[in-house]
Amino acid sequence: MRGLTLSAAAGEVVALVGPSGCGKTTALGIVAGLDRAFDGVVEVGPRPDGGPARLGYVFQEPRLLPWRSVRQNLALVLPRAQRRGPAVDAMLAALELTPFADRFPTQLSLGMARRVALARAFVVDPDLLLMDEPFVSLDEPTALRLRGLLSQLLDRRPATVLLVTHNLREALALADRLLLLAPSPGRVVAEVPLSVPRAARDDATIEVLRRDLLSRPEPAFRLLA
């Protein structure tokens, strides 16, 4: 990856789309401060209240602590004083996880585990949300259901989102703007703003948008096929 520049406005959902190996995950790691070999600048603005921005991260694998219950997995990412507060239970309820609160991650299906990972990212009340293929390797109905839940959460509590995906439909369903990336070196080759509001995008609209992108003649869009 070289000379990669990307920016997102507050509350904007930006999808990074591209084939594997073009540095999408690396880019998220850099923004999160996980990449020590990174040479460059990451600027994250402050919260509306002036405090430092809070970060939520949904990894490619759920990365839950297998030895802690679902409730504890959510509580642990909160400051100690808030762990027993209502935030955890409210988030569990919002994602319909209340019946699973005392289960351990080893008892959950992948879809449920991904849902818990989503709840954990939102329970910190994030300003910046990094999502790395959050719904990959799920069956289509489960993925659809989780995309819907994510949409609802973002409607209720907008956050700036960087969504890494190789699923064009997913990007078109969720993002305000698409960045198409190409490999070696990883770089942005095209930018696609989406003007239709997220709530108004039904399956038919998404399909029209998708066909339109796939039919564009520029080489950048040929990577999508």
Partner: peptide, 9 residues
């Protein structure tokens, strides 16, 4: 992976 998770959060 869990160490990264702990750092991010």
């Amino acid at each position: 992976g869990l160490i990264d998770m702990a750092r991010v959060y």
